[in-house]
């Protein structure tokens, strides 16, 4: 039901504005770069030390020394720059990056996010996620509305170990666009063909619904 991962990325791309420096997480967020309007100027930052990331290289032109934070070979665009990890996180903590888009396992109605650890399972690490969520002013979470067991990922309180507290501003799922407010998740848009009741049924956290909730344009 609802949007595909590509469509989630397509919807989030509308939040990317002219002149933004954007950090994209691994997974759905990476796809956002494919859908940003080409009449605006945007630079993508990868926390391993590059601004102005371009598409994957052509076959045979891969360079082991030019990768993104997902360790994938990439290219750079005119105006790109390289820098060390301390400067990279200086950009992030110093709030010079305008928008951070990342995935999550759980989001709480107060904006808490959990996306790095499941107790009892192999923990790979938080990478740069804790630095990003603790600093960014503008964080959009891209995720499916429910987990594989069909349980809500939008909760009153996160059950998993936290990555950051009170930091998420907006969430785009396969079913809805929601804003985190003091009172809970404010439903801004529905995915095409998805009703408010469908969304209510799989949102454990407090859901605020106005009289008319428009359908997403994707």
């Amino acid at each position: 039901m609802g949007l595909s991962k590509e469509q989630i990325a397509q919807r989030i791309a509308k939040e990317v504005k002219d002149g933004y420096y954007v950090n994209l997480g691994i997974g759905i967020p990476t796809l956002v770069a494919n859908y940003v309007r080409d009449d605006i100027s945007v630079e993508f930052q990868s926390e391993n030390g590059v601004l102005g990331m371009g598409p994957f290289p052509f076959e045979g032109e891969e360079d082991a020394d030019i990768i993104n934070a997902g360790k994938q070979t990439i290219t750079t665009l005119p105006g790109a720059s390289f820098f060390d990890s301390a400067l990279s996180f200086g950009m992030i903590r110093g709030q010079h990056v305008d928008l951070t888009i990342l995935g999550a396992m759980e989001v709480a109605q107060n904006g808490d996010i959990a996306n790095w650890k499941i107790p009892g399972k192999m923990v790979k690490g938080m990478g740069g996620a804790m630095d990003l969520v603790s600093s960014a002013e503008n964080i959009i979470v891209a995720m499916m509305h429910t987990n594989r067991a069909g349980e809500s990922k939008l909760l009153r309180e996160c059950s998993l170990p936290l990555t950051g507290v009170g930091c998420v501003k907006k969430i785009v799922t396969n079913l809805a666009v929601l804003e985190v407010t003091r009172e809970g998740f404010l439903l801004l848009e529905r995915a095409p063909g998805v009703s408010v009741d469908d969304i209510k049924a799989v949102t454990e956290g407090n859901l605020l619904v106005s009289d008319e909730v428009p359908e997403m344009q994707v």
């Binding site: 990890s85 903590r93 938080m126 740069g128 630095d131 600093s135």
Partner: peptide, 24 residues
């Protein structure tokens, strides 16, 4: 956290014993 890892190195390099970060 990755930024903390980088800054703990930089602090050692630059003679700063400790620092405050929002990460974590």
């Amino acid at each position: 956290p990755q930024g903390t890892l980088a800054e703990r190195c930089r602090a050692a390099q630059a003679g700063i014993p400790a620092f405050y970060t929002p990460a974590g």
